[in-house]
């Protein structure tokens, strides 16, 4: 029996990068060796999955932001000076011109969609009981979730959550005081990985996962469509690491997918000081990560 084919050879074979003479021998081996054949199939499955991914294009707003940023940075009128001035901040937070432009776009979108829906959510308050009564009967009417289309939307919306804005305000006021927000922030439950299957058990007894502000609590208990395999409390418990604190959570629609938005305060270093806000958007179906942003005071 011929020796087994290594991964590199099999991978190259899938790309048609194995020369004819060698290829014949390999094909002969594959026909008789189930182990190598299974390896080849597994690699082929990966290639097929990747090729099946949809093409991702920039949206109209993103294209405009991109164009504007490039014009500002390197337009003929500003050649040289502007180009040299163009620089990202060292901190790593997106601070390029794109963000100024997109920020305006996001703000406009928020006026149209976000604020209105958010206000509607607020007005209809903590309708946990109402929803609990309605949901089983109604054929899962889509919840009035805030519609978010991009990372910028997520940031804007997250900042509008009371718990988040309060936290950012506090840390901004006293950036160097260790554990300044701690007295008001209940520790999050222990991080437990991969226990998503337990979600169904929790769906009837939503528990608060802890939050500093009252609004965060009510948001955490906000109505979740019962059809979801993973409830917001379950998803929140699963994703928030120990040592972090939940600031707010809400059902949203992110790029057309029903999702949970969870904002929590976390330390940026191993000092343990809660000095940044992580905003995660997770699918309601499986608590899978759709978007992740960091907000600094």
């Amino acid at each position: 029996m011929t020796p087994h084919a290594d991964t590199e050879l099999l991978s190259a074979y899938l790309d048609g990068e194995v020369p004819g003479s060698e290829r014949a021998g390999l094909e002969q081996h594959l026909a008789s060796c189930s182990e190598c054949s299974a390896k080849k199939d597994a690699l082929e499955g990966v290639v097929r999955s990747l090729k099946g991914l949809p093409e991702v294009r920039p949206t109209g707003a993103e294209v405009r932001a991109l164009r504007q940023a490039v014009l500002e940075a390197s337009g003929p009128a500003k050649a040289g000076g502007a180009a040299r001035r163009w620089r990202r901040t060292a901190g790593g937070a997106p601070a390029g011109t794109v963000w100024k432009v997109l920020g305006a776009a996001a703000a406009a979108a928020a006026v149209l969609v976000g604020i209105v829906t958010f206000a509607a959510n607020k007005v209809s308050g903590p309708p946990a009981t109402t929803a609990a009564k309605q949901a089983p009967a109604a054929p899962a009417p889509s919840p009035p979730a805030t519609v978010l289309g991009s990372d910028a939307d997520v940031r804007t919306y997250a900042r509008s959550l009371t718990g988040v804005s309060t936290f950012l305000g506090q840390t901004h006021a006293a950036p160097n005081v260790a554990a300044a927000p701690a007295p008001q922030v209940a520790p999050a439950p222990t991080f437990s990985c991969c226990a998503l299957g337990a979600g169904r058990q929790d769906s009837t007894t939503p528990t608060t996962t802890g939050g500093p502000a009252t609004s965060a609590k009510s948001d955490t208990q906000a109505p979740s469509p019962l059809s979801s395999p993973v409830t917001l409390p379950t998803c929140t418990r699963a994703i928030v690491p120990s040592g972090a604190a939940v600031l707010g959570a809400s059902p949203v629609t992110y790029q057309g997918t029903p999702a949970w938005l969870v904002a929590y305060a976390a330390p940026s270093s191993n000092q343990g000081v809660l000095d940044q806000v992580i905003v995660e958007v997770r699918s309601q179906a499986a608590c899978a990560l759709l978007d992740r942003s960091t907000l600094a005071p």
Partner: peptide, 14 residues
């Protein structure tokens, strides 16, 4: 993610 992709695209064209 789109945010980083947009940022990177900006850097590329500049």
């Amino acid at each position: 993610n789109r945010a980083d992709a947009l940022d990177a695209s900006q850097e590329v064209f500049v």
